[in-house]
Amino acid sequence: MAMQFYASPEQIMRDRSELARKGIARGRSAVVVSYAGGVLFVAENLSSTLHKVSEIYDRIGFAAVGRYNEFENLRRAGVRMADLNGLSYDRRDVTGLALANSYAQILGAIFTEQSKPFEVEICVAEVGATPGEDSLYRCTYDGSVTDEPGRMAMGGQAEAISGVLKSHHRPDMSLGDAVKVAVQALSTVGGEGGAARTIAGHQLEVAILDRNRRGRTFRRITGAALTGLLDGDAAGEAVAEGDRAQTPTTPTEEGHKPTTSAGSADLEDKPGDKSDT
């Protein structure tokens, strides 16, 4: 007669946690930090099309490490939840906290109910009016959520990276300085014999939530703008700033009010405009 082996719930949870932790630690890392002009995402990513960092909503971004198929599924879910809430209520009613709570529910349910947990770690970042009002939420494989103080590292040797971030990052940094600190933190680990290494620009995925923009604030920094930022010259920052002018979603003059709908600054409320619903 076949014997059913008994495993205690503690043992099952420990095994699942170990599986998830190992999976997450195998991957490459990502860093999210607040800076003066917004929230910066820097992820080590060899692909230029399979993104680890993405836009969720006007002022909310998403970064993840771990298994691509699993966090991509969560990213799509996040976009759906945000768009559904934004349409049902108003665009300014979509918050990072609500999204982080939903992710916690989804991840927690998968961790306890499925035979294999998701091997992912997620950051939901919402850009505020000042660096102090930015919120970064870390959602882990077991459904726990933590509110991070303006900086966080996930994946790979996250502890070591966090240490570097903690000693070098300040929330009032410029974009150029923030990118340098993030890349420095990412490159402290993974070299020969635990030494630092150099990460080339094409191995990095960089994006920001631009604090000063209205409407959709998410923007990727690629190509010449990224090279300029990494080289640390003032021109690089200028290119990154100039990029803002070329993109169609430019801010309009009267500020500090979220948009009413998609795509463009022209959707924003004008004085005397009553028909936007």
């Binding site: 969720i56 976009v79 768009d83 349409l87 709908s261 998609a262 795509g263």
Partner: peptide, 12 residues
């Protein structure tokens, strides 16, 4: 508007 933005975000 949401339809177009949604597609853009999901598909990149």
């Amino acid at each position: 508007q949401v339809e177009l933005e949604h597609y853009e975000k999901i598909e990149g």
